[in-house]
Design a binder for these strands. Structure first.
Lengths: 115, 115
DNA sequence: TCCATAGTTCAACCATTATTGAACTATGGA
DNA sequence: TCCATAGTTCAATAATGGTTGAACTATGGA
């Protein structure tokens, strides 16, 4: 993943409505949600949501598919995986384990070790 | 980690100079680097860098310490860990494994699985 | 065909972010 | 004390981002 793509993905998620929309889509699973459902859930105007969805889409974090009159959006788990991959490999330095939580408790962290 | 903090951290990293500065600090390890060394490495004006370091610092991603005439900055690995934690737990949906690369292939991983 | 629904695009506006030179603060050394 | 170095803060400006109403496109049904 190139750093310009990383920046696009981070910018896309660094905004309240978009982070909420993305989390909503992640929660919805592969089925996704129609634009209108997202707009209602978040309480944002259609034009505003459309703008945000476009950014998420441009960053590759979501994709869409027309279904009758609605357009269904779904999270791109692969893209998210790549982002997390980049962050763990490039931003977790000497002790990469420190940025992969769900793992074993990471032994004692030695007084003053990390942090 | 609250979502407003997550947004601050994502915004902080969603900018070229800041992402570079952060990666540089991660690479430098716990020793960190003086502001001037970062400015030179990135080729940005001191005032500009100061502005960016303040944002990273405000987001909790780095911290600093005066050392003689210089101010030494270092990455906060804990904060980065919390961010990655948030992303993996909140943005990787039904198959959280899909966003935790360095783990074992978890059966079937589908051709082209992670990455 | 006409109409209603679901979304998008456009243009204008306001808010936030990024960059810069100049002024300022803090430290160390003569 | 005075001077030089290392950074920060300030104020002004330029560039991006976010929101909105209005106009537009696409689909489905009568």
């Amino acid at each position: 993943m190139e750093t310009s793509e990383v920046i696009d993905a981070l910018s896309a998620l660094a905004q309240e409505s978009r982070l909420s929309a993305f989390r909503l889509l992640v929660g919805a699973g592969p089925e996704g949600l129609a634009a209108g459902e997202i707009a209602e859930a978040l309480g944002v105007a259609p034009a505003t949501l459309s703008f945000h969805l476009k950014m998420l889409s441009h960053a590759g974090l979501i994709h869409s598919q027309r279904e009758g009159r609605s357009i269904r959006y779904m999270a791109s788990f692969d893209a998210m995986g790549e982002l997390v991959d980049f962050l763990t490999s490039n931003c977790c330095g000497g002790d990469p384990g420190s940025c992969l939580p769900q793992r074993k408790p990471r032994r004692r962290a030695a007084a003053g070790g990390r942090r």
